[in-house]
Design a binder for these strands. Structure first.
Lengths: 80, 80
DNA sequence: TTAAATTATACCCTAAAAGGTATAATTAAT
DNA sequence: ATTAATTATACCTTTTAGGGTATAATTTAA
């Protein structure tokens, strides 16, 4: 099974945004309409997520998934 | 069934990048390792996609999915 | 230190994504 | 105008994400 990376762009963004808003995973789950389990998978870096579920959460923070150029930093961490 | 939007950020990016590279959907499918059907769903704006499949294609063009602020343009088109 | 709250892990089930194939439609080439 | 190539649609099957629940671990508050 592909291993999880807690520190990818999406996981980090959601975890940080949520903490900044002083919310629990459970509250974020309620407010966004996605399952609590999904919030957890998301923050822990589950590799395979459905885009519209992710967007459902990102939208709450005024963001969305878009294609962006791969940073050097990301490229460095890719083979690990 | 949620209707498809051919002109979302991801679809447009992939279709444009592919055409710029003078590739067919079939070639992109072969080169990225995702199914031909997926390339089609992707370019035609299927709403629910798996992030790692999308990234598999984006990576080929040096991009990846990341959370970005929702643009005013996007916000304007949201209710439609 | 204990208790309470929050987060993480494990199980099962259902719904749907992804892929294959076949066919139709559209576009490009001759 | 015909033909060939590319793209789109439809049907079916397999795989797995997401959700629910229960339990364990961790963090926070008292």
């Amino acid at each position: 099974m592909k291993e999880w990376d807690r520190h990818n762009a999406i996981s980090d963004f959601v975890r940080t945004s949520r903490k900044d808003s002083k919310m629990t995973q459970s509250e974020l789950s309620d407010l966004t309409g996605v399952g609590l389990r999904f919030v957890r998978d998301l923050e822990q870096g589950k590799p395979n997520l459905m885009t519209d579920k992710v967007n459902q959460v990102l939208l709450f923070f005024g963001h969305q998934l878009t294609p962006t150029p791969i940073s050097d930093e990301t490229r460095r961490n890719m083979g690990e």
